[in-house]
Amino acid sequence: MKADILCIGAVLWDIIGRSNSHMERGSDVPGHIVRIPGGVALNIAMAAKAYGMTPALLSVVGRDAEGDELIAACDRLGLVTETVYRSDDLRTDVYMAVEGGNGLIAAIADAHSLEKAGDKILAPLAEMPDWSGPIALDGNLTLDLLSQIAADTAFASADLRIAPASPGKAERLIPFLTHPSATLYVNLEEAGLILHAAQPDAASAANALRSRGLHRAVVTDGPRAAACAHPGGVVTCAPRQVMVTRVTGAGDTFMAAHIAAEVEGADPDTALTRASEAAATYVSGDTY
């Protein structure tokens, strides 16, 4: 199976607790708890597959029972898993989140195996010297590895698409501000952290990132207008207003839809509109 997009980063199990109740610190409410395949790179891959692409995963998964289950699940989804590094001494990573009717309450990402594996996950790239498709990176990689990729001449002309994974990891993406062909996908808070200054809206944030040297910036702002600042200017799109029933993975779905639209030849305005619609559909989906 030949891939047309590489997804590099977290491939793990998501444990998500969801409730329709408004929650605060200390809340104890009824809801549903599920375990599903997740991680930023895997979320992007699953969404890209749904949009007709064939993603290959570059990550680490342990040779434990959880890892065997996860690889089997990815295989059933039609993802390329031969590129995943299977470790004998690192366990399969896991992410845990609690979501209420008022959004994400708290989350913990245990991606220590991904961090410890380091550049071993990039080994399959040596067999792809002529790769010209998009490469989706996520900020769960260490700052050292992200900096290495940003400075590597092998990636100088690559179509890099980067997501921070969470606000707490947003500053790891600063090395890509001067990369000649990188696109950052961030929300308004993450943009402010990278810029070290709060931004009033997505368009302002996207333009500010471009002024720092970034090739292209795509900034979302929840139910408010998203923006894409590119060498030809800036476009914005107000997302469809929906009832939010889930949030984990929404940004990854947005990013995958945007990439898929552009691979199909969509212009900046159309690609942003499709991505915004995909995210709206995702967050309004049925809860588990």
Rank of each mutant, 00 (worst) to 15 (best):
D64S: 05
M255K: 10
K49I: 02
A45T: 09
A229N: 10
D68R: 15
M255Y: 03
L79W: 02
P37D: 09
A256L: 03
R63N: 15
A72V: 01
I121R: 14
I15Y: 05
W131C: 04
A123S: 13
L6A: 09
P134N: 12
H196M: 12
L79H: 06
A151C: 12
I121Q: 13
G168A: 09
A72P: 02
P180H: 12
A229Q: 08
L104D: 00
G31Q: 05
E262N: 03
D88F: 05
V61M: 05
D267Q: 09
P55H: 06
E99H: 04
E264W: 03
G192D: 09
T183W: 09
H32W: 05
G38P: 04
V247R: 10
E115W: 07
T236A: 03
K49F: 01
N187Q: 02
E99T: 00
R76M: 11
R216E: 15
H258S: 05
R25Q: 08
P134T: 09
H22K: 04
S87I: 12
A202Y: 03
I16E: 09
A165V: 11
V247A: 03
A72F: 05
A266M: 01
P231T: 13
L188W: 03
E264Q: 07
K116F: 10
P37L: 11
L58S: 05
S204D: 10
A107P: 02
I16V: 15
T236N: 04
D201E: 04
P180C: 11
T287V: 12
T248L: 08
A151S: 15
R246G: 03
D130L: 13
A45H: 08
T220K: 02
A227V: 02
A256V: 04
